Simulated scan of single mutants.
Amino acid sequence: MKKRYAHKEHSQMDEKLSKWSLFWRFPIIWMIVGAISIILVDAFIRPLAEQVPGLLSLLLTLTLGFLAIMVYMLTMKYLARRSIPELSRKGAGVEAVMGALTGVIFIALSAIIIVSLGGYSFQWANDADTVTVLIASVEAALGAAIVEELIFRGLMFQAMNKLLGNWAALAVTSLFFGIAHLGNTGATLWSAFAITLEAGVLLGAAFMWRRNLWFAMGLHFSWNALEGLLGIPVSGHTTAGLLIVKVHGPSLLTGGDFGLEGSMVPVIISLLITIPMLYGAVRNRNLPTNFT
């Protein structure tokens, strides 16, 4: 009788543990837990990095990136219970460099076109400390690229992919990425829509094509870093660059106070880059699949 009771009690405990495990494995749950954890790490370390100068600030930002990646990997391993091929160390450097080159081409081409249309003019910032500006631009771009890609293309995309499939995941993450920038300086409904297309869709397509986060992080990093170095506001955040940008003409061309990302020019260019990425993803059967 005691053995039967003990067996029944053990079975009930196993059932409770199983239900608890399934709860944590539900995509929305691990997405929220992972995102909040990364945001908390960012909220704790980023203010410290902003209060210290030079290389120490960059070191703290690198620490932020490392911890954010660790939080992501722990979330995926112990809550989502899945492997993490999107952060494989194999080929990580090559993918990051490829992404960075793509970002440089994208922003440089956008800026050149806006200049040729009379929207921007640049002059060298004579009082700029080159080393300080470089470190500040790299630091700001690196922190944003790692944290935002882990949350949007890492957690949210894959949670939505699990529930709704690839294309719905691309649409949802792109929309939320645009909404997330509505509170920035100079933001408008148009700028949020522009970010949805030129950043949300482009970075989502990059992830679907390359099937790793390193490429998306590299693209995101060089995009923001180059804007900062050129003295162009990064999604409404003004920074001291190596150049001083003077803005002329309508905001639809220049992006206004929001910066280059609010311009029609990068929206068009991003779509020209996105389409072959999505085509390559489909053709190579490299689309992310639902995880088990």
Rank of each mutant, 00 (worst) to 15 (best):
K8C: 01
E9I: 13
K19L: 10
P27V: 00
P27F: 01
I32P: 01
G34K: 12
A35W: 12
I36K: 09
V41R: 13
V41W: 10
D42R: 12
R46F: 14
P47F: 14
L58Q: 04
T61W: 10
T61Q: 13
G65K: 10
G65D: 08
M73K: 15
L74H: 05
A80F: 09
R81S: 01
S83Y: 01
I84L: 01
P85D: 02
L87Q: 03
L87K: 07
G91K: 08
G91L: 08
V94N: 11
A100Q: 09
T102R: 01
T102W: 09
T102F: 14
T102E: 01
G103D: 03
I107Q: 07
A108L: 13
A111R: 02
I113N: 07
F122Y: 02
Q123H: 09
W124M: 02
W124T: 14
W124G: 04
T132N: 13
V133Q: 13
E139S: 15
A145S: 06
L150G: 05
I151W: 07
G154S: 03
L155S: 09
N161A: 00
K162P: 01
A168T: 08
A171R: 03
V172S: 05
S174V: 01
G178E: 03
I179C: 10
T185Y: 12
T185R: 11
G186M: 09
W190C: 10
A192P: 04
F193M: 13
I195F: 02
T196Q: 09
A199L: 12
V201P: 04
L202C: 08
A206I: 08
F207T: 05
R211M: 03
F215M: 08
A216N: 11
M217W: 02
G218C: 04
G218V: 02
L219K: 11
H220G: 05
H220P: 03
A225P: 07
L226V: 15
E227M: 15
I232T: 09
P233H: 08
G236I: 12
T239P: 06
L243H: 03
L243W: 11
G249R: 11
S251C: 00
L252S: 07
L252I: 12
G255W: 02
F258D: 04
S263Y: 03
M264R: 09
V267K: 04
I268P: 06
I269F: 07
I269M: 09
I275L: 12
M277Y: 13
L278C: 12
R283C: 02
N284E: 14
R285F: 01
N286S: 15
N290V: 13
F291A: 04
F291H: 10
